[in-house]
Write a protein that binds this DNA or RNA. Structure first.
Lengths: 181, 181
DNA sequence: AGAAATTATTTTAAGCCTAAAATGTTTTTG
DNA sequence: CAAAAACATTTTAGGCTTAAAATAATTTCT
């Protein structure tokens, strides 16, 4: 099966006939941003209304729920793709509320080990169940094939981003670029 | 051409054999969030390094650049999908820096009309050109067909989101859900 | 071992962002 | 026309977020 010549022509068009034109990529990015923002805002609202909590707190607890032995501040910071200082601040609130436990590692006292408390785990599990339903509800207009296709294309996007970003590794924070969960 | 039976089976699987399972949607959302965050962080870093400015300021100026006659605070707030108070604050900084002009509308003194100053427009245009290149660079791993496909699927996602969100219109802020630009 | 470098986290200062209440203006209504 | 309702924006209080500097602990190097 040969590569369709139309594709080749498209690439030629992109590369040669419209040099410096990147409007399609820009439109794509703006649309992706719109989708992300709509979802984030909606989840934020529902977390507040239904559980009187915030998205950063939920996200942090989601990381801790994935491990039995706990996680360091740096590890959480990398996975959530936020700064260390931010983790420190959000954790402080969760510790105050008895949802997270924080203690220095015995063998390396620089490191702080974070774990969910029993209550924290219970509270998180209840929220996570609802959260999963909300997400499904938001994507209800896409069938399974479309979801799979979109997932695949975003995978390619992620690869492209990593290549472009690590290509000029003078960046501030060491972005892990994990799957957030 | 008939619908492939495999697709029907897939939908049945989703609907009947794994009731309450929405892991695919969740994975999709986390991957989308990862992509958005990577792009946003990178653009933020480059705006700071190259132009000593921030993304919220850039986004606000981008809205004002699209009009000759100016825009109200509320209009900008809707288009950027942020709160009114936030626009007030960011605008204050831009006015101080001489990039944006703000004046009450003569016929309705509740309304504030925001416009780019001549300098603001000049500064913005320079940044916008670089910004467009950066976005293209980040998406360089996708060919034109993939970009088009992704754009289409995100369009469906947007429609799905609007249906799910406006369906329960007890939300706090009137999310416009525009294309951000 | 002791100095220097590295690593992990916290603190600081500043800006972003929101929801809700307050302010000032215009429109509607009785 | 005056009171009430609606509207646009700002203020307020509080939480999130970052970059950069500071602190504290461990590892490396001589």
């Amino acid at each position: 099966m040969e590569t369709p010549s139309s594709l080749i022509l498209d690439r030629e068009t992109k590369a040669n006939e419209r040099p410096g034109d990147h409007k399609d990529e820009l439109r794509l990015w703006l649309r992706m941003l719109t989708c992300s923002t709509l979802i984030e805002t909606e989840i934020r609202n529902r977390l507040r209304e239904e559980f009187k909590t915030t998205l950063p707190r939920f996200d942090l607890m989601a990381q801790l729920d994935k491990t039995a032995v706990g996680m360091t501040v740096g590890e959480v910071s990398q996975r959530l793709m936020v700064s260390n200082g931010n983790v420190t601040a959000v954790v402080a609130g969760l510790v105050t509320d008895g949802l997270v436990d924080k203690r220095s590692a015995p063998q390396d006292r620089r490191v702080q080990i974070l774990t969910l408390t029993a209550q924290g785990r219970k509270v998180f599990r209840a929220m996570a169940e609802r959260h999963e339903d909300w997400i499904a509800e938001l994507f209800a207009g896409l069938d399974q094939a479309e979801i799979a296709q979109l997932f695949r294309l975003l995978g390619q996007t992620k690869t492209s981003l990593h290549r472009a970003i690590t290509g000029r590794q003078d960046n501030a924070i060491g972005m892990a670029g994990g799957e957030n969960g």
